[in-house]
Write a protein that binds this DNA or RNA. Sequence first.
DNA 1: CATATTGTTTAGTGTCAGCTAAATTTCTAG
DNA 2: CTAGAAATTTAGCTGACACTAAACAATATG
Lengths: 225, 225
Amino acid sequence: METSEAVDDYLKAILELGGAEDSRVTTNALAERLGVRTPSVTGMLQKLASQHPALVRYERYRGVRLTANGKRRAWELVRHHRLIELFLHDVLKYSWDEVHEEAERLEHFISERFEDRVAAILGDPEVDPHGHAIPPKHEAGPYRAEVPLVAWPLHKPAVISSVSDRNAVALRELERLGLMPGVALTVEQSTPAAFAVRVQARSSPVRLGNDLAGYIQVAATDRRP
Amino acid sequence: METSEAVDDYLKAILELGGAEDSRVTTNALAERLGVRTPSVTGMLQKLASQHPALVRYERYRGVRLTANGKRRAWELVRHHRLIELFLHDVLKYSWDEVHEEAERLEHFISERFEDRVAAILGDPEVDPHGHAIPPKHEAGPYRAEVPLVAWPLHKPAVISSVSDRNAVALRELERLGLMPGVALTVEQSTPAAFAVRVQARSSPVRLGNDLAGYIQVAATDRRP
DNA sequence: CATATTGTTTAGTGTCAGCTAAATTTCTAG
DNA sequence: CTAGAAATTTAGCTGACACTAAACAATATG
């Protein structure tokens, strides 16, 4: 019952494309995310379903979903990924935009021991450098009420909760603009193509295209006393 | 001109089996070392020779040797391996016998950047936890006058220069016996099957089987003033 | 509600790196 | 210097996991 590198990639992708909420994930979406053609996805899903029925539920023409086991395994990989990202950033002094690619490669090959030691060194951290929650060992990621910035109402105060780690160029740009997790902002203006957000402690509003804005997730400002 | 994980393994194995001194390495020896059948080795060598003629020189029935390029690449991998071992030991607090297996997996997947950062954190170290020299970046490993303990003359003072990292069980045993790099000793007695060595700062001689002794390399005591 | 478009699956290939069985070459001992 | 043993290579397969082209479902629109 080993699980190969490729299988791992599929499980993680399914999780990140909606499997976390038990929704069906389509062949197309997977192909897109994994940078692979759709027939390859079909083939892999069939194999996955027949060889690891405990991990996924697959129905012809209707997509896949993860079983409880499948979710556990996928969250484990996400934990690996995010721990490695934080480790690269904090210990090996990688910059924000450099960590994803390396983590993506390494996450498949580290042992339990490596995971544990890294977590210990980092003090059992809860958030990675992009603001994503690091799920505790053996647990699913916590639910967090994130909303894409592009769907946030005008003028309502928000905090950037996370940014996607998948595009290094975009990350560099976001950093330059001061748009990082924890930063408070309000949306001043939004057109189909662009955005103006007012960032706390910045005199003039920041303008950014929809493409960039798409990488940002926000949440309501937390005002517990 | 990419070089795959498997190719890397072959290059490193060739180096470690004598390629470092330009001697021919046999199909058999490679198969043994890599845990693979001989026909697989033949196949791989043929492919290697035809696709990467700049790395190896292969002659049917007469083994392989590394070219200058091949050696450079192989030493790079050795550097990776040893840096990772030291890193796991010093930073992640792995024990002596745990580092090899993990390093063996990770060495293929780390980037230049990872290598550089780790080297920096460790202060450009020169020796790994088993006493093996870490070759400087872009250079071949230094020549070191090591001799297998089993070939060392009786009563002549020696220092353990390195121990093989490839057998975790043996490593634990050696640690228990206090036989680690840097330890001074003399061989008191040797039979075809066993050994008695007197270790500095130990009252009674240590007895060890030829199998264990085979993992130890020694050098003449250095007495530069 | 029939057809066009989109999404998904089947069929057939290719590459990589391993394997076994059998043929061949080289080495070694008498 | 030749027979037998040992080492190496060839031939032919296997299992992953990708791909293209073509068939087939599902959905969306006029």
